[in-house]
């Protein structure tokens, strides 16, 4: 497959950044951030893939009978998912407050500082 899976991850990142840059709605921007984060899942899992490998779980697999994919990057992807979920939650909470205090969720309409 060559470097295509890595390039796919980079493509997802750039698409998400395009969305972030042009966003007119903070909820949409948070969605774009989640897409940007998901590009790291694709990158991590493709770095850890081994041809013909199966899941690194030995409850129904005799150790050494089959190649397994890299468990280290899978654990990193799990950490990544948890951190992504927490960031999304905090940003959504901030957006709710912003909507209440400034009456808009358009980042480009937020120009003045207000106490």
């Amino acid at each position: 497959m060559g470097p295509w899976p890595y390039l796919a991850a980079g493509w997802i990142l750039l698409v998400a950044l395009y969305g972030l840059v042009t966003s007119r709605n903070l909820i949409h921007a948070i969605g774009c951030l989640a897409v940007a984060q998901s590009s790291t899942y694709v990158l991590l899992l493709s770095v850890g893939y081994r041809r013909g490998g199966t899941a690194p779980v030995f409850s129904d697999l005799r150790p050494g009978s089959r190649p397994v994919v890299d468990p280290v990057v899978q654990a990193l992807a799990l950490t990544d998912v948890v951190v992504g979920a927490t960031v999304t939650a905090l940003l959504l909470a901030l957006t709710i407050q912003l909507r209440k205090r400034h009456g808009t969720v358009d980042p480009q309409a937020l120009t003045g500082l207000r106490g």
Binding site: Y6, R50, R51
Partner: peptide, 13 residues
């Protein structure tokens, strides 16, 4: 992609 050598993975297993 899909290479056979994963030194960290083998050690973790």
């Amino acid at each position: 992609f899909g290479r056979a050598s994963h030194p960290y993975g083998d050690r973790a297993v």
